[in-house]
């Protein structure tokens, strides 16, 4: 069977219609926007605060929507039917990733606009955001594969959201406990670092290492997702 874009869009449309009628998901989607309105109105918010909200958008939309899309297929017992269809695994996951990515792009762009955030070096920040979004999608796939229902995914998403949204406030602790320096390498911290440099007006060359680390995370999380998927399929 050859790769078919028509099938990918079919899956994308189906998932869009299905998930947009799921109240669990839709109410979660507007949360980052509300946060952006509350915190961003004064226009004096710090970079940390802005990135907390952007990361929240990435997690709640990218990761959560992606996890729900997969968990729901499992919950409703439809994944098996999809596996028996001519659509390949690649097509199924591409369709889902595409939908989550579009949703993420819309919500994150929306919250950035609402907060009047102006990144210094736009291309670098956009590339970093896109890469981060891909990382969060992978994370969502992973959570979706490991949970059995949308509700379960909603529960798991809470600690994930804390780690990736609020950890930037742990910086003071890091100086106290050197063991926590690994936090520095989490994709959201790299993102923040990159944004700070961009704000200061540096070029691509200076943020290269940040981008590279994020790319590393992207590759890592997707390999993990593929591994878990294969393992789960054997079990079922």
């Amino acid at each position: 069977m050859t790769f078919s874009m028509k099938r990918v869009t079919a899956i994308l449309q189906k998932d869009y219609k299905d998930i947009s009628r799921n109240l669990y998901v839709t109410t979660t989607l507007v949360l980052p926007l509300i946060m952006a309105v509350i915190f961003g109105r004064d226009g004096k918010s710090t970079l940390e605060l802005i990135y907390m909200i952007i990361n929240m958008g990435l997690v709640l939309v990218g990761t959560y929507v992606q996890a729900s899309l997969i968990a729901e297929e499992k919950e409703k017992n439809t994944l098996r039917g999809l596996m028996l269809s001519p659509a390949s695994t690649l097509e199924i996951f591409l369709g889902k990733n595409l939908l989550s990515f579009i949703a993420t792009a819309v919500i994150v762009t929306g919250s950035i606009l609402l907060m009047n955030y102006n990144p210094g070096h736009v291309p670098a920040v956009v590339i970093a955001l896109v890469l981060s979004a891909i990382f969060y999608l992978g994370l969502g796939t992973l959570i979706g594969l490991m949970t059995k229902s949308v509700v379960e995914a909603s529960v798991i998403i809470v600690p994930v959201m804390f780690v990736f949204s609020f950890i930037s406030f742990m910086k003071p602790f890091m100086e106290k406990y050197p063991i926590l320096t690994f936090i520095e390498y989490l994709p959201n911290m790299q993102m923040l670092d990159l944004a700070a440099q961009a704000q200061a007006g540096t070029g691509f060359g200076d943020v290269g290492s940040n981008l590279l680390i994020i790319v590393g995370w992207v590759v890592f999380i997707h390999i993990l997702a593929v591994y878990v998927y294969k393992k789960r399929m054997v079990e079922e």
Partner: peptide
């Protein structure tokens, strides 16, 4: 299959058009 799930949030027509596209 007897215990087959379906996309219950879709309408009959939407579901069928999804399968039509999926299966060409």
């Amino acid at each position: 299959l007897l215990e087959e799930g379906t996309y219950e949030n879709l309408s009959v027509k939407e579901l069928l058009s999804f399968y039509k596209k999926l299966y060409h």
